[in-house]
């Protein structure tokens, strides 16, 4: 029993070590040529344009649902004019990056892990190595760069739609668009924007690293690829929540909030 626990702990530590080394190598490799521009553009299209619809839908719906909750409470306490303020703080600082991050993570992590896992099981990654290509540069770096560009952009779109949706809900509670917009603009400070934009940048690196690593380490054919894909999505989703918690605390401390 104790031996089993120790063995599991050892394996977990080895996995954490391997993943850390993989991530460090990924970030280091990202700055060393050759750069696969065509592959990067292809991945950027897949990550950005491909995720646009789900981000638009989730941003719009989640923003309106949040605004509905806030507007009712604020109306009851006589602070309806504060809706813009609360929406900016909630959406830009917290909800937007996490919501868009998780939506994109579920799509991209599954796609990346399944693709690289299938390449692994059909010897395509070995073939890349055999032809003198570094799979890290050819497969992983373009996906990470694409996500680092696409995710913050998608967060901006998701935030904009969510905040705009809040304005529409506010109108149902007799909050004028002008007063709502004034509240939004007052709290759309560089600091709040910075907090909202640091998160997706780090989420993107994490999604790329986890999804590619799970693909590279998948074993056991189609079943193994399926298991790795599921694990990849779960790790990315939970990872975003954990990273969000850690970053929020860190940022609050750094900005003396």
């Amino acid at each position: 029993m104790i031996r089993t626990v120790i063995e599991r702990l050892r394996r977990t530590l080895v996995t954490v070590q391997e993943f850390t080394l993989f991530t460090v190598a990924l970030i280091r490799t990202a700055f060393i040529p050759p750069f696969y521009g065509r592959e990067m553009m292809h991945q950027l299209y897949f990550a950005g344009i491909g995720s646009l619809l789900i981000v638009v839908v989730s941003g719009t719906v989640a923003g309106q649902a949040l605004a509905l909750q806030l507007a009712r409470e604020l109306a009851q306490s006589g602070a309806k004019s504060q809706l813009g303020h609360f929406m900016v703080i909630s959406v830009v600082r917290a909800l937007g990056p996490v919501l868009v991050g998780m939506v994109v993570a579920s799509r991209m992590a599954a796609g990346i892990t399944a693709e690289i896992g299938a390449m692994r099981s059909s010897d395509q990654i070995d073939a890349l190595v055999a032809f003198g290509t570094d799979p890290m540069k050819r497969l992983v770096v373009p996906r990470m760069v694409a996500l680092v560009i696409a995710l913050p952009a998608l967060v901006i779109i998701g935030d904009t739609l969510a905040v705009a949706g809040g304005g529409l809900v506010g109108m149902q509670y007799h909050i004028t668009w002008e007063s709502y917009a004034a509240g939004v603009l007052r709290y759309l400070t560089p600091r709040n924007l910075l907090v909202g934009m640091i998160k997706p940048f780090l989420f993107a690196i994490m999604i790329a690293a986890v999804a590619c690593w799970k693909g590279f380490t998948s074993e056991g054919g189609a079943k193994g690829v399926g298991v790795s894909t599921t694990e990849s999505v779960v790790i990315c989703s939970v990872g975003i929540l954990v990273l969000d918690g850690i970053l929020t605390r860190l940022i609050f401390r750094m900005l003396h909030w």
């Binding site: 059909s122 010897d123 073939a127 055999a130």
Partner: peptide, 9 residues
Amino acid sequence: MVFQQGALF
């Protein structure tokens, strides 16, 4: 190198 199942991309 020619791989077992071809391993075409």
